[in-house]
């Protein structure tokens, strides 16, 4: 029983951590057909912004809000630096965006290293306890308030993003731009603004993720690479562009890792191997990912 509860708790929390980063990838891809490889770095930047604000004496919720606002601007900046200079392009044939987004991410990390330093930083949790409850134990497995908040928040974000994309004019505009930027423009949509808004929202998502993840992972430079890679795999497993896919992909990795770690004490060695095997199996069965739509070329 303990093992089952442990797998559930570990799978959900680790899966949610990964999903919180994968949301950013998918949001940008859903609107632009671009994978923003700076997403992991945006998470790191947002985390350090929140840390700096909190260290200045602002309560964590204030630091959280300010980091979201600042990260909206960071997202816009990434778009201006990495995407706009490429002009009008077809992301499927002109892949300069791979280099530019990746490059901007590296520059951001180096800037943090030069200005703030390379040390990991601690951020207080958004909530340490709820009505006096700090840690619950089910079958000897600890469940904490920050972990519960992490899991619930990830689910709420899925709902929020789904609603945004399907029930709002902004979401429809995103999809239109993704479908065919030229026609969307002809229909009166400001496509450049839509792309910019997408990156801004991805920045905000990075800030939300950074603060929620911090109690488990701290704020540190290597998050961008470590978590960024896992999140990218999760996004591909779930289907690039699909919000539901991001969380399902996160859970696939989270539960796979939890199961392997429960079966063997050498989970650290075998976990990534099994994750990649699962990743390949999913792609063999569903090349576009679990919720992805296969590309159809009209002739």
């Amino acid at each position: 029983m303990t093992d089952i509860v442990q797998i559930l708790v570990s799978g959900l929390t680790v899966g949610s951590v990964i999903a919180l980063v994968a949301f950013g990838y998918n949001l940008v891809f859903a609107s632009t057909r671009i994978v923003n490889f700076a997403q992991g770095s945006m998470l790191v930047v947002a985390g350090y912004i929140a840390f700096a604000v909190a260290r200045a004496g602002v309560p964590i919720w204030g630091a959280f809000a300010l980091s979201i606002v600042a990260s909206l601007a960071v997202g816009v900046l990434v778009e201006i630096v990495a995407i706009k200079p490429l002009g009008r392009f077809d992301p499927s044939t002109n892949v300069g965006w791979i280099l530019t987004t990746f490059g901007v991410g590296l520059i951001a990390i180096d800037l943090i290293k030069k200005t703030v330093g390379a040390e990991a930083r601690r951020l207080p949790p958004l909530a340490d306890s709820i009505f006096g409850w700090k840690v619950a134990k089910i079958s000897g497995v600890a469940i904490t308030v920050p972990d519960a908040l992490l899991v619930v928040s990830a689910l709420l974000i899925v709902v929020g993003l789904e609603l945004l994309q399907t029930r709002t004019n902004l979401g429809r505009a995103f999809r239109a731009v993704a479908e065919d930027r030229q026609i969307a423009g002809l229909m009166g949509i400001n496509t450049e603004l839509m792309v910019m808004i997408t990156f801004a929202l991805a920045g905000a998502l990075a800030a939300i993720g950074a603060v929620l993840i911090a109690p488990r992972q701290f704020v540190k430079l290597d998050l961008g690479v470590n978590l960024g890679l896992q999140a990218f795999i999760a996004a591909v497993i779930g289907g690039l562009g699909s919000t539901r896919g991001a969380i399902v992909g996160g859970y696939v990795i989270g539960f796979t890792t939890a199961i392997v770690s429960t079966i063997t004490s050498e989970g650290g060695s075998w976990g990534p191997v099994v994750v990649f095997v699962v990743f390949l199996m999913v792609l063999v069965v569903r090349p576009a990912g679990i919720f992805g739509s296969p590309a159809v070329e009209k002739v």
Binding site: V9, V14, A258, G267, G268, G271
Partner: peptide
């Protein structure tokens, strides 16, 4: 027990 750098979960 083994783990990977940046591990967030030592539960199992």
């Amino acid at each position: 027990e083994t783990y990977q750098l940046g591990n967030s979960d030592f539960g199992p």
